[in-house]
Structures are given as C-alpha cells and as structure tokens.
C-alpha cells in the first residue's frame, strides 16, 4: 500500500502496527507482567481506531459557538472513555493476579510456573 497517496490512512496503519505488536508480545513473552503490557498495547490500538474514526479534519469539539460549523463526532470518543475504564480494570485485575501468582510460585515466568506445576 502506498501511504503517500492516502495520508488519511496513516492513523489506521498505526492501529494495525500497534495491534500486531501488542498481540505479538502477549503470545511470545513468558513474563506475565510483559503479557499484561502487551495486552495494554493491543487495547490502546483499539482506542486509536475509535478516536480516529470520530475525527474530522478541521472539526472542533462539539460545542455550539459562532464561527464553527464542522464538529468531530464525540460518540466514539465517549465510547473509548468507557473502554479505557474497562482496560484499566482489566490491567488492575491482571496485575493483582500476577502478585498472587508471585506469592504462590515465587516467580512470574510462565515456563518456570509450568515446571513447578508439572514437578508436583
């Protein structure tokens, strides 16, 4: 794809790259905290996707004021506020589980945990 012709697609290219990077971290990293970080990057890509689709070039925030005719769509932005809250909750719970796993196993490396489970 030629992004010079479609500068409007720049954000979407970033979305795809972030999404794949996040997913790659989740799949390949054995460290549980890094997995959570990957999950966060993955979710952040979706935030960018939603915010981009609401944005209109030259548009302002939807506040009635003389001289402004073009407004960006606020709905996707508000939706993402909700999604961010969900993401924070997920991260908090994930990290809490990592703390408990560290207390129970003494490690947060996936392969180490697996070895301990098998040896029992």
């Amino acid at each position: 794809m030629d992004f010079e012709i479609h500068p409007g697609l720049y954000n979407y290219a970033v979305v795809v790259m972030l999404m794949m990077a996040g997913l790659y971290i989740v799949i390949t990293r054995g460290n549980l905290v890094k997995k959570i970080v990957g999950l966060n990057v993955f979710q952040a890509s979706v935030f960018v996707l939603y915010i981009t689709m609401g944005k209109i070039i030259g548009g302002t925030a939807p506040i009635l004021e003389d001289g402004f005719k073009v407004y960006s769509n606020p709905l996707p932005h508000v939706l993402i506020l909700t999604a961010i809250v969900v993401g924070v909750a997920t991260t908090a719970l994930g990290l809490a589980l990592v703390v408990r796993i560290r207390e129970a196993y003494g490690t947060i490396e996936e392969d180490e945990i697996q070895r301990q489970d098998e040896s029992r």
């Binding site: 993955f42 979710q43 719970l93 994930g94 589980l97 129970a104």
Partner: peptide
C-alpha cells in the same frame, strides 16, 4: 487457579 484465571484473563481480553 491463579494461573488459570490469568490465562483466561489474557484470552478473554483478546
């Protein structure tokens, strides 16, 4: 149970 919950959290969130 903790590792199972963690694994479910990762896959469920995806």
């Amino acid at each position: 149970a903790l590792t199972a919950a963690f694994q479910y959290l990762v896959m469920g969130t995806i």
